[in-house]
Design a protein around this nucleic acid. Structure first.
Lengths: 352, 352
DNA sequence: TCCTCCGTCTTAATCGATTACGTAAAATCA
DNA sequence: TGATTTTACGTAATCGATTAAGACGGAGGA
């Protein structure tokens, strides 16, 4: 019957066409296709068959107009560096988010501030496109644009940052940093410095966990061993490294805010003719792919981006489909310690 | 007046609201906002002012339903490895594509084969979402799904592959490979092997250019020096490397299908205790970011992903807005040779 | 003075769906 | 058999916009 399923029909099939083909009204077709009870089983089957055969596809615009549901998720992926989709960490989350959203019948639209000539806020963009929900994974969580979205009536889930009004998906930074620090200590490093990122909730979790772990193992952490640097900024991390190595008691291991930043440190240490991991150990955070091709491989904490993206998609869709599931909470996703050669067991050290 | 621009109004402002506020009909508001001539200048200004003040946003669903334009671009980004958005090369193109599309007032929707439970073709998905145009940047260009899209009435632009029915955006592979090969030769390498990707139009351009360049410089290329491997497959490239190095006359330089593949080769050479670039030179293709953090840095050809994405967006939008611009042609984007330490001037060699 | 034309709005149809409500026939009950 | 409920559809309003066609008052021409 349907030998032209792959043909390029100029005019899409609409309900009216099916109605005429079946000799019933448009309303009946609609109800049959949606499985309403007031259509006899026989006509329902007939209509569905004809519809499939004619290659019927609903018109998402009409659907949205009438039902006020777009099956479309707004996504906000922007960091201050504007690396956007290029960012390996974000793109991994996005990829997983997209897959899970598709699985559940949702498409994705990127929210931006200017669409064409007119400037509009992220919220406006979401309204314009009728997004059923929004996932935010950006860095500057305190811009008024973001807050407008957070305070709006649209279901929102944030990644890597928590607002008390909304559910968030976070790496278990506390456990992750604890594992990393404990491993470094177990390798025999004694003077561990932490070049941490700028002051955010995530950073605070990590710094706290770092401190606690060192303390528990009886390791002192001089104040000078904690330096702030911007995330993903090799310049900052290079500078911090110089500062650390100029100390009277320079550290024998440095933890960087993230994998990328660790490169800045590595370059400085190279220039100082210090060898990693013998003279000094270095570690990152994120578990990006390129950390695997460095020599020596970077010791880092891999964030489970697969799970984070999936969890974010599921949560926001749950909130859309069952509004009662919207009670704000935190979804913690475990990380995994990756032991690379950049941190190694020291000759005379006890191994746990 | 508009002190609540950032407030979360439950109900969006619609034309009717503006019409009532201005004491005119809905039609007049619509025409005023769209700059039609049959509205007096004074009422036009008044309406526009009130509309802006009330924070009016058009409803994209209603707009699409009535005008049959969605200002939405379908994007197909899928390679057989399913690395999807994680793929550094694609994500760079996508990022640029997205920026340019936004600039011109278009949003982006990823086309997939199954949205929710129901399976639909890429074409169906594009129709369902009313995409005004589609950009394809996938690897398996010969699947029936892709062909259906290619043969459809929807404006389509392809990246990295040409169909005679459609306009495509391509790197200037011929010039790129020529520059790379010429540079390698100028460094003094004499026996250059090329582990090329699977048989595609792109591969053929590169292989042809490689041959020609070698020939022009009087360099013989034994058949055994050309080996096929899948793109982005380190296993294949490792295997090819072993095969090459087992030859009676092993090459003194190997060009890999892409940057990522070059890692497979590097590992094999490392195990053989061969030093890069002294014992053997290696080169990639793509210019991915991680190639910069390798030691020594990879010599490669950087594809101008920024320009490719932008060109693709512009072309497809041009076709949408001015159908006459849809005459199929190829848009060539120049590449840039990146000289890393993985290919170096040989001691006794002439330098061009 | 009367008719025409023009500028400016309004009316109403339409895009493709959903759904409250109405209705005729069949089934159930007294 | 007559009244009532149930089943299975159809009618028409509606979502938020665009746009062809019609209406109305004033300016200009004969």
């Amino acid at each position: 019957m349907s030998e032209d399923k792959l043909s390029d029909s100029k005019k899409p099939v609409i309900l009216k066409d099916i109605a005429e083909a079946c000799g019933v009204s448009v309303a009946t077709v609609s109800k049959a296709l949606n499985g309403h009870r007031d259509v006899s089983e026989s006509t329902r089957q007939h209509i569905c068959l004809i519809a499939a055969d004619m290659g019927y596809l609903p018109n998402s615009a009409a659907l949205r107009l009438k039902t006020n549901r777009s099956f479309n998720l707004g996504v906000l992926f922007d960091d201050q560096a504007n690396s956007g989709l290029t960012h390996n960490f974000f793109s991994r989350i996005l990829d997983s988010l997209k897959r899970q959203a598709e699985q559940r019948g949702y498409d994705i639209t990127f929210l931006s501030q200017n669409i064409g000539q007119m400037k509009m806020s992220y919220y406006d963009h979401a309204v314009y496109r009728g997004c059923d929900g929004v996932v935010i994974a950006c860095v500057d969580y305190y811009s008024p644009e973001i807050l407008q979205l957070i305070k709006s009536e649209i279901p929102v889930v944030t990644i890597d940052h928590s607002f008390h009004e909304r559910t968030s998906v976070l790496s278990n930074n506390v456990d992750g940093m604890r594992d990393l620090t404990a491993y470094i200590i177990s390798c025999g490093y004694q003077r561990i410095a932490y070049v941490h990122g700028e002051d955010t909730a995530v950073t605070r979790s990590r710094v706290g966990s770092f401190y606690r772990t060192c303390e528990e193992r009886g390791l002192a952490v001089p104040d000078a061993y904690l330096i702030a640097a911007r995330y993903h900024n090799t310049g900052d991390s290079a500078q911090a490294t110089r500062q650390l190595m100029a100390l009277d008691q320079p550290p024998d291991c440095i933890i960087y805010p993230d994998d990328y930043s660790s490169l800045g440190g590595r370059w400085v240490l190279d220039k100082m003719k210090l060898s990693v991991p013998d003279d000094i150990g270095i570690a990152g955070f994120d578990g990006l792919n390129f950390a695997r091709v460095l020599d020596p491989e970077l010791t880092t904490v891999r964030q489970d981006t697969e799970e984070m993206g999936k969890a974010a998609a599921n949560q926001v869709i749950d909130e859309i489909e069952r509004p009662r599931s919207a009670i704000p909470h935190q979804i913690l996703v475990n990380c995994q310690l990756i032991k690379g050669g950049s941190v190694a067991v020291r000759p005379a050290a006890p191994v746990s």
